[in-house]
Simulated assay, not measured.
Amino acid sequence: MAPFCSLPFFTTTKSKTTSECNPIEQLCHRFSLAELQAATNGFMPSLIVNGEGQCQVYKAHLKGHGDVAIKHFKTRSPDRDIEFRVEVKILCQLHHPNVVPLVGFCDHKHDKFVVYDYVSNGSLHDCLHGTNNNSVVPLSWIQRLNICIGVARGLHYIYFETKIPIIHRAVKSSNVLLDHNLVPKVADFGLCKKHPQEESRPKPPRVELRENLEVSLEYMEPEYFMTGRLSNKSDVYSFGVVMLEILCRKKACFLTPGGECEYLAKWAFDDERKGVLEKIVDPSLIGKIAPACWKVFIEIVQRCLASVEERPTMGEVVVILENAFLLQERADV
């Protein structure tokens, strides 16, 4: 992997993008706007596979690259420009089976595009909950465990196996993509922050309140919401919510029969349920989770959702999930 430079591209809204160490053209392929227009038939609306939020994503075919996803930052603002540059400069230096592969980018006046490999099964969120265009993909418990392990490996890689630790800051089911083999790919790195080297013991980076609002509250650790300070355990909490989402097949924030919003992390461990398998698990999994596997899995979920001091590292999460997988395999045999 190419080494990170001094990483001035991890900027806040107050930083200037002119302080970059290298032009992004030196780090990955730059496409022309004409190439992307040709690949999408003039950005034909029927090719949009995701049009929510601040971006639109098109499925396209680029000669020499095959099927790709083209992400258009449709909102024009200094914040979107920073997000675009952060995502490109991080992804061009990350190479891992559980991180979405970058193909290139296009920076044409006010139009910003990021080009990735196309991931055919869409997002984990869509597979679990369905969309207007796609039905729910039935996932076995073993498949769900594999997805959890893959996401955990990807998050461990970006924090512990890169030159500068990276806090993803937007870990959620919609930012996990599944390929044709249901291998998960962590995506959407535009809100990433670098974490200071731990040996210098600096204060954790503080995030502006405006930026907090860009992060989905249902996945946000309570400490981050209250103080605006990140830690190396911030993504661990968010991943705990994703694991619950995979287990329960409920959205991280859902409506109760009474029409009230309920956070999944609170619902699954309230006094009525307290993490009891039959009361929280996706009904299609009842009777299919080995007791030994269940015990290990639900305990690591609870630890991920605990206070910062009690949360495991992502490396610990990977090891424990791999053990849960083995326990399930043995039970199935």
Rank of each mutant, 00 (worst) to 15 (best):
G190L: 05
G190T: 02
G190H: 00
L191K: 00
L191M: 02
C192I: 01
C192K: 03
C192W: 00
C192S: 01
K193I: 03
K193Q: 02
K193W: 01
K193A: 04
K193S: 04
K194F: 02
K194D: 00
K194T: 03
H195T: 03
H195Q: 03
H195D: 00
H195K: 05
P196H: 05
P196D: 05
P196R: 13
P196V: 07
Q197P: 06
Q197T: 14
Q197F: 05
Q197N: 13
Q197V: 14
E198V: 15
E198D: 14
E199G: 13
E199V: 15
E199R: 15
E199D: 15
S200Q: 14
S200H: 12
S200M: 10
R201G: 08
R201Y: 08
P202T: 15
P202S: 13
P202I: 14
P202M: 10
P202D: 12
K203M: 14
K203G: 11
K203V: 15
K203D: 14
P204F: 07
P204L: 11
P204Y: 06
P204C: 13
P205I: 10
P205D: 09
P205K: 13
R206T: 12
R206Q: 13
R206H: 13
V207Y: 02
V207C: 04
E208G: 09
E208H: 10
E208A: 13
E208I: 11
E208W: 08
E208S: 12
L209H: 10
L209S: 08
L209Q: 10
L209M: 11
R210H: 11
R210E: 04
R210C: 06
R210Q: 06
E211T: 15
E211W: 05
E211V: 13
E211M: 08
N212M: 12
N212E: 04
N212D: 02
N212Y: 07
N212Q: 12
N212S: 12
L213M: 12
L213K: 14
L213D: 08
L213G: 09
L213R: 14
L213F: 15
E214W: 06
E214G: 05
E214N: 06
E214T: 07
V215T: 10
S216L: 05
S216Q: 07
S216E: 06
S216I: 01
S216H: 08
S216T: 01
L217S: 13
L217N: 07
L217P: 08
L217A: 14
E218S: 07
E218Q: 08
Y219N: 04
Y219G: 01
Y219D: 01
M220Y: 09
M220V: 06
E221V: 05
E221R: 15
E221I: 09
E221T: 06
E221Y: 11
P222G: 11
P222I: 08
P222K: 14
P222V: 07
E223Y: 01
E223K: 09
E223L: 11
E223G: 03
E223C: 03
E223S: 04
Y224M: 09
Y224F: 12
F225H: 05
F225D: 00
M226P: 01
T227G: 05
T227N: 04
T227S: 09
T227A: 05
G228A: 10
G228L: 07
G228C: 09
G228W: 02
R229Y: 03
R229P: 00
R229K: 12
R229S: 05
R229D: 00
L230E: 00
L230I: 07
L230P: 02
L230W: 03
L230V: 06
L230H: 06
S231G: 04
N232A: 14
N232G: 11
N232Y: 10
K233G: 04
K233D: 01
